[in-house]
Design a protein around this nucleic acid. Structure first.
Length: 389
DNA sequence: TTTGCCGGGCG
DNA sequence: CGCCCGGCAAA
């Protein structure tokens, strides 16, 4: 299980790397111009990632030919279908969203020190610090001396190699909801997370050694925030916390979100599940299943544009049938960096259709002649809310 | 063929 | 929004 849970963020990260290195889904020119990045033929894999046994072998198998493809073909020739398939297959083959607490064993090995190795987004992330801030923060900064920064911006962090360039000044941001504390040392951020969020008053039995690794993210203090929180977006739900609500995530409009999050979110921000309910009567059921791991960007005009593709994936549907509860109509977004959009996010959106329920519904129970006895959604030919399976 | 319900239209 | 229904897919 630890293996599976560790694969989840890594797979997403790997795929995002493939997308990015291949020029994303958009204009390959932009990959080297607007973003200032060159399209390389290799994938920067964090050292630990590259050598960790937690990298899903099947994913590597899938990605390898794709990488080769990227290296010899024009970016636009990359078969996005394969990417999509790989995305799904990777999650199927080795990394369902972990149900077990992330404190289990090897999962922690992913990001012990300086670099998390996968994407992380915090809607309340602070803006890049000003030069004055930089100056005021020395290398001798005590671990717990954090920076309180404005919390309404989102910083999108690129998965950087563990070895940072010298010009970068690394900092570490707490991804705990409504926290956003920024510390300049790994030890400090870990201690902050552990003491403030995880081991609240010692009541938390799961105060494991490395769980805090999932709650912080390395940042470059000069970098620009690349995505913004959506206008009405619930706050980033990075908390893959098996913990009781000692530090309850703030302000998601509906409490079930946070509880669901704390149960099963695979990683702070590696990928996320976003339920979109068309009707209000669906939302409760939707959230009962959905784990909204993070929100990164408003569904912008680009959602519908050419920078990503929307398709249904039957294999993913099968996975959902095996792993999910009643409400199974979801959008799975995976956010990747898009060179074509100047480094802004690109999203892969996988749409799964709600599978058929086993339970008898109003129509069957009451019969079509007693339609007035049906629940409202049944009458409207929507998903039955009375006889949930 | 029946059933469940998504997607979309209408007021 | 509330309501309805065409149409699709699974049973």
């Amino acid at each position: 299980m630890a293996f599976a849970s560790s694969c989840w963020p890594l797979n997403t990260w790997l795929l995002s790397q493939v997308f990015f290195q291949c020029g994303g889904a958009g204009d390959p020119q932009a990959a080297s111009t607007s973003c200032g990045r060159s399209v390389s033929t290799c994938i920067n894999v964090p050292r630990r990632l590259g050598s960790a046994p937690s990298v899903c072998p099947s994913l590597v198998n899938i990605l390898s030919p794709m990488m080769l493809c990227c290296s010899r073909a024009a970016p636009q020739e990359v078969d996005m279908d394969e990417l999509m398939a790989a995305m799904v297959l990777s999650s199927l083959s080795c990394s369902p969203p972990p149900q077990a607490p992330l404190t289990d064993g090897g999962a922690i090995e992913l990001s012990d020190s300086s670099s998390s190795g996968y994407w992380s987004v915090d809607p309340r992330s602070p803006a890049p610090s000003s030069p004055a801030d930089e100056a005021g923060r020395g290398s001798a900064t005590p671990p717990d001396e954090g920076l309180d920064m404005e919390l309404d911006q989102v910083l999108f962090e690129e998965p950087a190699p563990r070895k940072r360039r010298n010009s970068l000044k690394a900092a570490f941001r707490c991804l705990w909801p409504a926290c956003g504390k920024v510390l300049t040392s790994v030890v400090g951020i870990k201690r902050h997370i552990k003491t403030v969020h995880l081991c609240h008053g010692g009541e938390h039995e799961r105060c494991s050694r490395s769980e805090e690794d999932f709650y912080y993210s390395e940042i470059n203090q000069w970098e620009e925030p690349l995505c913004q929180s959506p206008p009405s977006a619930p706050p980033c739900g990075p908390a893959p916390s098996p913990s009781p609500p000692s530090a309850p995530p703030p302000s998601p409009p509906s409490p079930p979100i946070s509880s669901a999050l704390s149960r099963s979110a695979p990683s702070p921000c590696s990928s996320f599940w976003q339920v979109q309910s068309e009707h209000s009567y669906q939302e409760a059921a939707a959230f009962s299943w959905c784990r909204q791991v993070y929100w990164c960007s408003p569904a912008p005009a680009g959602w519908q544009g050419a920078t990503f593709r929307v398709r249904s994936v039957s294999v993913g549907e099968q996975w959902l049938q095996q792993h999910s509860a009643p409400c199974r109509s979801v959008f799975l977004y995976s956010v990747i960096p898009s060179a074509a959009s100047g480094g802004a996010l690109t999203a892969v959106c996988l749409i799964f259709r709600r599978i058929r329920s086993e339970a008898k519904k109003c129509r069957k129970v009451y019969g079509i002649e007693h339609r007035e006895l049906w629940c409202t959604p049944c009458r409207w030919k929507k998903a039955c809310q009375r006889f949930l399976d």
